[in-house]
Every structure is written in C-alpha cells, then in structure tokens.
C-alpha cells in the first residue's frame, strides 16, 4: 500500500536507517527533544581539519517522520563542509523528505535538522564539543 506521507523513502529509512548507532570517533554530539510528543534525536559528527563532515550518525526514538528524517539527513550531510551545512536551510531539509508535512509534523521532520544547525554553529574545532 502506498501512502502520501508514509511513502517508501520514509519507511525505508525508518525500518533500515542509515548510520543509526554510536560513533566512537565523534568530534561533537548534541541531542534535542520535541517536548510535545517525546521525539528525541541525537546527532554525532566526525569532522576533519577542513571542517568537512566525514561521518554522521544518529540515535533516538520517536515517530517515523522524525527518525526517517534524521537518517536521510545523515546520508545527505556526509562529505559536506560545515560551511555548506550552515547554508542548508529548512526548506531544503523538508524537500529532502519528499513528502508534504503539516506544521505540526514539520517539527518532527526538522528535529534532526535543528540538532545539526546547533552543532554547526557551535563547533569550534575542539574534539568532544557538545553544544
């Protein structure tokens, strides 16, 4: 059955997420909660001297949208520089999901994105930085 919101991209990432787990060599990590529904997303990034994201991992719990979005985000940002991440906006994040979200569900779809932005702006190059 094909669904307008829970389409194959979302469900593929929900069921078989990209880089869900712990990243032992993380340069930085940060967690955000969506207090409304209890969704939680933590991102861990390994960043090199050129400020390029070598690896991105996430952990968390929550609805299919928040977790799939975090997975899609990790896949998207690997290989990009923090400068590119800073220019990456919410519209682009929502476009990556390829489904139309209501205002309430946008909070789920943008939870990982919010974590990423916090990390990108707070990162000062020292290992273990946690915003």
């Amino acid at each position: 059955m094909s669904d307008e919101l829970y389409d194959d991209l979302i469900l593929d990432h929900y069921e078989s997420p990209y880089h869900r787990g712990r990243l032992e060599s993380a340069s930085c990590e940060h967690t955000e909660l969506n207090p409304l529904c209890g969704d939680r997303v933590q991102l861990q990034l390994q960043i090199d001297e050129e400020r390029r994201i070598q690896q991105a991992y996430f952990e968390g719990e929550g609805c299919a949208i928040s977790q799939a979005a975090a997975s899609i985000l990790c896949e998207h940002i690997e290989g990009r520089t923090l400068g590119e991440v800073e220019a990456f906006d919410a519209r682009q994040m929502l476009d990556l999901l390829q489904v139309r979200l209501t205002a309430t569900r946008q909070r789920c779809g943008l939870l990982g994105f919010k974590v990423l932005k916090t990390l990108a702006y707070a990162y000062d190059g020292t290992a273990g930085t946690s915003a």
Binding site: L5, C37, G38, D39, G62, C63, I65, R105
Partner: peptide, 28 residues
C-alpha cells in the same frame, strides 16, 4: 507504530484522539 504516527493515520479515518505523554511524563 509510534503513537504520533498512529494518531496521524487514525486522523485520516476521522478518528480524533491524543498521542504523547498526556502531561504525565513521570508516569510514562
């Protein structure tokens, strides 16, 4: 099926109910 997804999909069938911690986080 996470409660939030459940509520979203039930909504399509006209069912109005709540998903979340219902203002009782210690209980959850």
């Amino acid at each position: 099926v996470h409660p939030h997804d459940m509520a979203e999909l039930l909504k399509r069938k006209g069912v109005a109910l709540r998903a979340g911690h219902h203002c009782a986080m210690p209980l959850h």
